[in-house]
């Protein structure tokens, strides 16, 4: 079953002569437990796609269907609840609250949902421990490395047990090693914990961790490829493909 799918999704910014079509009738899907990467050059519409999937922005035309519901038809409150309970976000700039500790940051979505602080923190601690941050629970973001901060952000995305995790250039602000770690972590999220992960990236090496890659260009899907996660040569293959598609 598909966790998320889009039907003829179109997003146009502006109007008249200055109108820019960011997405042009895109129909894609991501199945339960699948790790999908969206790739493409700058300005191809990949971030817009992610925003629409997350209900952060409204489509001009077409539908985004999450768990059988059309996102476009939901009120702001319903959308907020959907995000809180069924989605997790990982951002490029981590976006942790500077005044909260690692465990408080990770517990934030369920605390917002009314879970008792102790319970929420216990749950966040579980996830942080799984991600190797057991000894960093009480540290504030500025006391953590970039990789550690992003792991806290992934823990935050998972703490509400969402079906869908959306990641926007999650490694864009990290060094190579930390980037690999986070990509592997996201893969683990889909494989081990059965979540659907949709990740936007322009880095072939990172995208190569996914099960499937969707290539976007000028707001259209121009290619799609399913990866075998065995031979370890995926990164080169994806890079080649990217280069070819760019021309």
């Amino acid at each position: 079953m598909n966790t998320v799918e889009t039907r003829e999704l179109t997003k146009i910014y502006g109007s008249g002569d200055t109108a820019v079509t960011a997405l042009d009738s895109i129909s894609i899907h991501a199945a339960e437990g699948e790790f999908v990467a969206v790739m493409g050059p700058s300005g191809c519409g990949k971030s817009t796609l992610l925003h629409l999937l997350g209900g952060l922005d409204h489509p001009t035309r077409g539908k985004v269907i999450i768990s059988g519901q059309d996102v476009a038809e939901m009120t702001d409150d319903a959308l907020t609840e959907l995000r809180r309970r069924q989605m997790g976000f990982v951002f490029q700039f981590f976006n942790l609250l500077p005044v909260l500790s690692a465990v408080e940051n990770a517990a934030l979505p369920i605390m917002l949902d009314g879970v008792k602080p102790d319970e929420a923190k216990a749950k966040a601690t579980e996830w942080l421990t799984r991600f190797g941050l057991a000894d960093r629970l009480v540290n504030r973001p500025d006391q953590l490395s970039g990789g550690q901060q992003q792991r806290v952000a992934v823990a935050r995305a998972l703490v509400s047990e969402p079906k869908l995790v959306l990641a926007d250039e999650p490694t864009g602000n990290l060094d190579t090693r930390s980037g690999d770690e986070i990509a592997a972590l996201l893969r683990e999220v889909s494989q081990k914990y059965g979540r659907t992960v949709v990740m936007v990236s322009h880095d072939p090496r990172i995208a190569a961790y996914a099960d499937r890659i969707i290539f976007l260009k000028d707001g259209k899907v121009i290619d799609e490829t399913v990866l075998e996660q065995k031979n370890g040569k995926n990164a080169e293959m994806v890079a080649e493909r990217m280069t070819k598609l760019a021309h």
Partner: peptide, 10 residues
Amino acid sequence: GMLRAVGASR
């Protein structure tokens, strides 16, 4: 913005 994204209501 982040709080809103992770599910904080208005």
